[in-house]
Amino acid sequence: MADTIAPNPNALDPNASSARLAAGPRGKKPRPVLAPRNIMLYGALIFAAIYYLLPLYVMVVTSLKGMPEIRLGNIFSPPVEITFEPWVKAWSTACTGLNCDGLSRGFWNSVRITIPSTVVSIAIASVNGYALANWRFKGADLFFTILIVGAFIPYQVMIYPIVIVLRELGLYGSLTGLIIVHTIFGMPILTLLFRNYFTSLPEELFKAARVDGAGFWMIYFKIMLPMALPIFVVAMILQITGIWNDFLFGVVFTRPEYYPMTVQLNNIVNSVQGVKEYNVNMAATILTGAVPLFVYFVSGRLFVRGIAAGAVKG
């Protein structure tokens, strides 16, 4: 016992440690940079990155070239003479059917469709999820099951009945009609998302709020909502990208003057008159994809955090 308590006589001697250590491995284990493990790992990552980035590269490069340069056929070569003409044309003067005002009309249509659809669907789904998770009302399980089953019915089956319903309501062909359709179709997955998140929050929090006298809406707005921000971000990303990228509902439920950007893009790219303007098509495609891309870049990290928060807790 005594020798461990007594001050170490070698404590002040810098060379003392070498006397205590035996020869052989010591400290951090060295890892060569070019180990097979690293080569495999980074090789696979670089390959995957190229695989996904190459089409994007071709698109950007092509959209910056003039038509004579494109006809040379070197799709991978960078533009000799950079021109933004195709971008301007795609945005403001490309012809889609009768109109020749480019994608700008579709862009604003998409904005007018996406924002209300996202806001309304998330508002309703979050209350649904909260009610299903915390207020175990009679028939809650049945209601939830029906909602989830609804998510598995193919869209195609429901299109014609919905056309009839909208027609009878006098909403067929209008933006309002399309917004209602998007809200309804977003409901199952969003409700599931919110229900699972609220279920993962400690139940005692809800009980404490009830003892404190808070009612349904008070608990929702004061307790649950401030805690649910990550899942709101996830829902927002899902809805914005989903609705922005939607083609089927946009083409079925609206009139040409309300076509969303995706439908207009298709009409530009697939127009049969005249020459195929590849540079304009590429620019139009990038413009259409820019919004979801921007949303991912801005909120990607929040998205991952939100998904993880919903999955791990509880």
Binding site: P202, A208, K222
Partner: peptide, 11 residues
């Protein structure tokens, strides 16, 4: 009432 997990409103 006092709960096991404290159940304090985090925000």
């Amino acid at each position: 009432m006092v709960f096991q997990s404290y159940a304090l409103y985090p925000q």
